[in-house]
């Protein structure tokens, strides 16, 4: 079977892009190899680890389980874009302060999922946070510091 190509148009981190790519390219391969945003990582590439989490039309999704062709016409935000907007700058600082990352491979995905958690603007216990973050693997930290960082920013934001 020959490689079927498709032209996709979307907005990635605020910039309109148009590329012709193989239809089988998933969104994170597209973002990394065609656009050069290498903040979104590929761990398992079958939806288990969460390292590839990106935001599509406002919702966090697995970037490895969405074809770039499916995101045609969508607004895509990666860790680079969300860093630029400053939406989670407090959380990013807290991750450093609490040592919530070691090798850093899972961190962009953790932050993308945590950004959606914070956007709920609801009180969350540590158990709630663990459940919310349960789709993101970290093989270094043991999660405790990650939950610490998210918990303190969620509480700070609700208190402020």
């Amino acid at each position: 079977m020959s490689e079927e190509m498709i032209t996709v148009n979307m907005t990635v981190n605020g910039e309109a892009v148009s590329k012709t790519i193989p239809v089988r390219t998933h969104l994170v391969d597209f973002i990394r190899t065609e656009l050069g945003f290498t903040g979104s990582h590929l761990g398992c590439e079958h939806g288990v680890c969460g390292a590839c989490s990106v935001r599509v039309d406002g919702d966090v999704v697995r970037g490895c389980l969405l074809l770039a062709a499916q995101a045609d016409g969508c607004e895509v935000l990666t860790i680079e874009g969300i860093t630029d907007t400053g939406e989670i700058s407090d959380l990013q600082e807290k991750f450093v302060e609490r040592n919530a990352l070691q090798c850093g491979y899972c961190t962009p995905g953790m932050l993308m999922t945590a950004a959606e958690l914070l956007a709920q603007k609801t009180e969350m216990s540590r158990d709630d946070i663990r459940e919310y973050m349960s789709g993101n693997y970290c093989r270094c930290t043991g999660y405790h510091a990650i939950v610490d960082a998210i918990e303190s920013i969620n509480n700070e934001r609700l208190g402020g």
């Binding site: 079977m1 239809v23 089988r24 998933h26 590439e45 079958h46 939806g47 697995r62 490895c64 389980l65 969405l66 074809l67 062709a69 499916q70």
Partner: peptide, 24 residues
């Protein structure tokens, strides 16, 4: 049929299935 794709895409990425065409 490609609906949410959350089960289909893993099987494609792992080459456990090889359909000729995806209908999105």
């Amino acid at each position: 049929i490609l609906a949410g794709g959350q089960s289909l895409m893993p099987t494609l990425n792992m080459r456990l299935s090889q359909p000729e065409i995806l209908i999105d």
